[in-house]
Amino acid sequence: MHAYANPARFLKLARPLTPVFLTLGAALVLFGCYAGLVMTPPDYLQGDSVRIMYIHVPAAWLGMGGWSAIAIASITQLVWRHPLAGVAARAIAMPGALFTAICLVTGSIWGRPTWGTWWEWDGRMTSMLVLLFLYFGYIALSNAGDDRTSVSRATAIFGIVGAVNLPIINRSVVWWNSLHQGPSITLKGSTIAPELLWPLLPTVIGFSLLFGGIVLMRMRTNLAEAKREARLRRMAAA
């Protein structure tokens, strides 16, 4: 892992990977959305409104996956002092918050025609909203110090503590009576018919690749900024 502790070595890998992630991700998302809008049948109960699932599910996955990645990066930063862990965590926070917001907005739009409400304070919705606020807090905390490349240790600790919310989001529909339905896709299989399920594969992978591409771009930007500042400081000292 420490082989990529050297930013130069990381950049050598990240530079060619960024366009690959972004173009492949965009292509998969476009195909998945076309499939979800045109090629799949409507749901027997919900009709065409079920198609919002192909955005809603990847957004939920990335909102929660983003914080999982922040938590892992935070542990890596605190325990192994890996110099890129904080850089990665800082880069993940903004897209993570974005996808959490997309999940909440698409869920709200989906809730109106199916449940008959834009918003209710049930366990799943409330815990997902808490995740968005955790992202806001994390971003604010990461910008509180002078460091604009990595994050402070306090921020990393916050990243670990906030992960407590992840199992709560996941289990909220099982532990408590909720308006949101139970999990469709579990280790045991899927209660979504294969005809409706398959476009989720390209959209989930596609959005994940886009997410990865954005994170790599943000990491490279922050590393370049740090390099520029170091050079300016050297020139000023000379």
């Binding site: 049948p41 339905q181 139970g182 979504i192 005809e195 409706l196």
Partner: peptide
């Protein structure tokens, strides 16, 4: 009234 649907999705 709010409608609550289950986790099953399928074609008509």
């Amino acid at each position: 009234l709010l409608a609550k649907h289950d986790e099953k999705y399928m074609p008509p």
